[in-house]
Amino acid sequence: MTGATATIEDQLRAILRDVLGVDAARAEAIDDATPLFGAMPELDSMAVAGLLTEIEDRLHILIDDDEVDGEMLESFGSLAAFVRAKRGA
């Protein structure tokens, strides 16, 4: 369970582990510069869709279809920035 103090990055790492099966060591090594879509083998286009749905459900945001693009998923940092902006944090 992620506590109230868990950062958005920590919560996203936990989702990547649970949803995509990224192992703990790899998840820990993920930083803002880590490329995602097109670089992470687990993240095919169906996995992207599932990841976004799980992010919506677990981080309580709504993602519009026109926000889903390569830029948002380019790196872990861009995904975290998107989620942070959505949460207004």
Partner: peptide, 22 residues
């Protein structure tokens, strides 16, 4: 609705034809 959303977003993410998602 959620299943269809997953299919649609898969097409959006991959830049493929939204008429034939995944």
């Amino acid at each position: 609705r959620s299943l269809l959303s997953d299919l649609r977003r898969s097409a959006l993410a991959s830049g493929s034809d939204p008429a034939t998602p995944a």
